[in-house]
Design a protein around this nucleic acid. Structure first.
Lengths: 328, 328
DNA sequence: GGATGTTTTGCATACGTATGCAAAAATGAA
DNA sequence: TTCATTTTTGCATACGTATGCAAAACATCC
């Protein structure tokens, strides 16, 4: 039977009270050096570690961050996950990971998080259903939407400058001489895909360039199939802006299979700058999403809200940059 | 100020005792239908949810599984993560995610997990340092090494049948007519890479085929550079077995850059069967690791050990299969 | 209806920690 | 040394739930 070493045990061995042991482990409490040393020595001997559950129970706050993620198959997100984990661990917070298949987060997706009374929540690549937004609001749980935003500014969101980025991409393709272009959307319900479409379209239309739009699903397969369809319809344009890299790779492969020269006949631009985009086989021109900066902003906001909840919201947009490679 | 709805509140509204409320939410406790309904109604009205911390405190067990992962950049692992999350969530368990850069898990990697008194731990693609093994043993924390094993059978491990698989791969390459082959290892300290090398080598030597060995690091870059080196040394063999897919893709790209025909001049076999291996650009012949089965075994073992700790250990090997595509 | 057995309920307490309060100890000033 | 002030300590209690125990309610049978 495994026995749990408690503060009381340590107190006994160190010859102090349980309160003193508690104070040694509670940041900001006042303890003399003498007792601190006695306690730490005893704790080490017994292998004591404070019970986080008891702590949370009494302080009514936890050091757990809930992270909800959908598209872990897109290599963009494992990197995001890693960075969040690393950053929060440094700060003494743990990550409770939730995987979902819902575009809109449902109540059952966050049940676990609420049961554990998490200190804050990050939702990546997903939106929120109505009853979930209410739940968050009502319970004042600090929340960040990462790489998504919702129309009303009810929540804090951190995104790349999608609108501006896609405008620049449009300008870039026009500059490169494209007079007929296409946009391949990811999931049409996502703010990122919509914003990218909006920015791209506005510039394209302003320049009287022909634009065809397609909708896919943010996966390699999706990009591949969409490109095949475009080819079958003999509508291959001179330039294609694909809403994310993993789809763009599928597009590239489909075009290659049909011996359509990239960039000579068609230029391809992706979005994200995932690792694979730089692989020599692909050498994909793309827009770099500044993950590190986006993570940093998210962490800072959450930490602040966890210290003192304000409910302040904002749609933060972090600047990325065009990475020119060999598909344009 | 947010107010926490407790069982006491529910009890008051429902006109029963706090114990009865508790029993409604505790599986296996005896409550009459009448009180159950009263309680559930009241709970719904107040938005009550049991506090997991208080529960854990008193039962001295948690519903949290610690998952430690290193190589999240290898697309094999996000899939593993997703499956574990999904399976454990179904069972009412949550995943506390830890990311590490250590080949050998250190004490600080699992500090968080121990503080939260996790019910079980899964460690993927990493080994254990000595003081960590002791910690686990001493505290009887159910543990599974996933896709790694350690020499002594101190812990339960779940792997693919690496030895058998690599033997079959060797036979396959020989059958295909290779008289000169190479093996590109991942991290030489990992059991997986060693086993794959061992099986492959044994068959190759038995057949008097020339074998060169190289060591890399389980990354695309690593595979790419190793292949470049092989090319520079003009030692390109007729067949290469690469210890995992992501390296194999790097190898393929490097060979292609140097116009070495695959499979005509050189045949490539990878390991894992990650999604990308099936992409038309690569069409990589590889060994499928049966993730679903491996996850299932891991979950079953952990669940059993969490109900009643036995300390039983075994090196479980799950059978995969050769997936023949166009690189051989 | 009464006796018996069974199920359900409430009471009281425990889990391991943090914290307000008052007592004790340490420090500083004179 | 003495007194005032500050720092440190221990006591007692609270957090929200589970559970052993005994009382209460219910069901069953003759």
């Amino acid at each position: 039977m495994k026995y749990y070493v408690t503060a009381k045990d340590v107190a006994k061995l160190a010859g102090v009270s349980q309160s003193s042991v508690s104070r040694v482990y509670f940041e900001g409490a006042s303890v003399s050096n003498k007792t601190r040393e006695k306690v730490l020595a005893a704790a080490k001997e017994l292998g004591y570690r404070p019970n986080e559950f008891a702590r949370s129970l009494i302080t009514n706050r936890t050091k757990i961050i809930g992270l909800v993620m959908k598209g872990i198959h897109n290599p963009f997100y494992p990197e995001v996950l890693k960075q969040f984990t690393t950053e929060f661990n440094k700060l003494g917070y743990s990550i409770l990971f939730v995987s979902t298949n819902n575009d809109e987060i449902q109540k059952e997706d966050i049940d676990m998080l609420r049961n554990y009374n998490v200190a804050g929540v990050i939702i990546t690549d997903a939106s929120l259903s109505l009853n979930v937004t209410e739940d968050f609001k009502e319970n004042q749980v600090p929340l960040v939407l990462f790489n998504r935003k919702i129309d009303n500014d009810q929540f804090y969101s951190v995104c790349c400058n999608n609108l501006d980025a896609s405008e620049k991409i449009a300008e870039y393709l026009i500059e490169k001489g494209c007079s007929k272009v296409a946009y391949i959307a990811g999931n049409a319900n996502t703010s990122t895909s919509r914003d990218r479409e909006k920015g791209f379209t506005s510039i394209i239309e302003k320049n009287n360039v022909t634009l065809n739009k397609y909708t896919s699903d943010y996966t390699y397969e999706g990009g591949y199939k969409t490109a095949k369809k475009i080819i079958a319809e003999k509508k291959v344009p001179e330039g294609i802006f694909v809403a994310n890299d993993i789809m763009a790779l599928g597009v590239v492969d489909a075009l290659r299979e049909n011996s359509i020269m990239i960039p000579a006949e068609t230029k391809i631009v992706g979005f994200d700058n995932i690792e694979m985009a730089s692989w020599p086989t692909y050498n994909l021109t793309t827009w770099e999403q500044p993950i590190t900066k986006m993570v940093e902003h998210t962490v800072n906001y959450l930490m602040a809200e966890m210290v003192e909840f304000s409910g302040y919201t904002e749609s933060l947009e972090v600047n990325g940059a065009l990475i020119v490679r060999k598909t344009t």
